[in-house]
Design a protein around this nucleic acid. Structure first.
Lengths: 246, 246
DNA sequence: TCAAAAGTGTTTGGTTTACACCCATGA
DNA sequence: TCATGGGTGTAAACCAAACACTTTTGA
């Protein structure tokens, strides 16, 4: 993998908050920077003939192996101070003879996007500036590079707000899932418990689920039903918005 | 007024959708480009040591004379095609010996912001690329430069969505106003009629208004009460959000 | 047969909607 | 005195929140 700044727009970067859901926890995909040892959000730059969204899809594809990811820009981070102490520059300075050092020393304005992906389908791969790429649950995230903690915080807040008027599970759940599992997702995002019965009634009222047969899994209790998303209605709900608030 | 690209970030611009309310109409402040004759949104560029918001405030101050304007970024417009037919470049080509032509020929990614201002306080001033700066009501807006029609459309949609969970009147109304006037503002933004009595009950339930004495104005009907915003509660409502939906 | 967790339905209270009557004002 | 439009209140419909009992399952 090579890096060619001459095909990239200057001053503009993007940072992706990639959300996944696993073991009843909301997770974020992070990369570990080679030299500074800091964790950071997967990012990217914009090629001269692509949009932010295209560039982000490209970065996501590289990091996760997935295409057609749910992706949404939510905020531009442009505080002039955000780049001043960019440890990525320090990393590069430590590399012998890095020809692109000056390019990284410029000030970057970064577009924040969040992505929703199905945890099990992701095959995390580091980029050329990092040596590790892996999932971290929200409470495992320590101090991130630059203003990335702020970016995660704002992304989560946006996601919470969207939850009230947009269906989101399709991008985060496996193809088949139970109602309690879906509820856990909502509870995790919102950071609070929901009533089991009211949750079910509400989510069913959206008509975005198909009920399948029961599942027999080996737990010492009644086996919950399996559901899948009804893509047609899900799509409509995405376009028209939902009503409620959780 | 001079123009010094050497102090500006390349590739990044901003466009402001400045909303005002007058004569029961929602208006947008536009500038008329000197050479192409096209109307456009007031825009700006980002200086090397300022944030997007600061740059936008600067542009707004220049265009309207106002400081401390309500301002919110809502979307980045980065389609590579948006700049290709930039008539501003054509304008500049027609100017003899414009030294900054190449600077404008670059591709721009633009951050869209919307602003809410009190119509009567604005003193519109063109920028160096335009010869007119004036208010246009939404239905008077014809074809704008580049993708500015799209930007206006998205701004309006954002404003409509915000309406449900944020108070907005303070920035658009004069210091004192009547309930029917405030209702007109909401109706205009939403593009639909609201019930007079339910509107009043709802807006009063937010506790963001102070009721003043009646007003006597010469109309052939009962004189409506005057109200003003309760700044303390208004501020709280901004931070905590409202409940409803219209 | 018991604990754990899922399925289902009902009651209650609050919010939103729809609607009607009276009052003040200038013409 | 009348048309216009504002002030206020109430009944009905709807929605959300709280809550209980029954069922299934593996241990």
């Amino acid at each position: 993998m090579s890096f060619k700044p001459d095909n990239l727009l200057e001053h503009i970067s993007l940072d992706c908050v990639i959300f996944g859901f696993h073991a009843n926890q909301l997770k974020v995909l992070l990369v570990h920077m080679k030299y500074s040892g800091k964790w950071a959000l997967p990012g990217g730059f914009i090629q001269k003939n692509e949009s932010i969204e295209t560039a982000a899809s490209r970065a996501l594809k590289e990091r996760t192996g997935l295409s057609d990811i749910f992706l949404k820009q939510f905020r531009v981070f442009s505080d002039p101070g955000r780049s001043i102490l960019n440890p990525a520059v320090k990393d590069l300075e430590e590399q012998e003879g890095n020809e692109h050092l000056n390019w990284f020393k410029q000030r970057f304005i970064s577009v924040g996007l969040y992505a929703l992906v199905e945890f099990s389908k992701v095959d995390p791969k580091p980029d050329i500036f990092s040596d590790v790429c892996e999932w971290k649950s929200l409470d495992e995230i320590g101090e991130l590079m630059m203003d990335h903690n702020l970016i995660v915080k704002k992304a989560l807040k946006t996601l919470q707000a969207q939850l009230s008027y947009q269906p989101i599970g399709f991008n985060l759940m496996p193809a088949q899932f139970t109602m309690p599992e879906l509820q856990k997702l909502y509870e995790t995002i919102l950071g609070k418990k929901l009533d089991r019965r009211n949750f079910q009634r509400k989510i069913l009222s959206y008509k975005i689920l198909n009920k399948l047969g029961e599942r027999k899994e080996g737990q010492a209790n009644k086996a919950p039903f399996l559901y899948e998303f009804n893509l047609g209605n899900y799509q409509k709900a995405l376009e028209n918005g939902l009503s409620g608030g959780w």
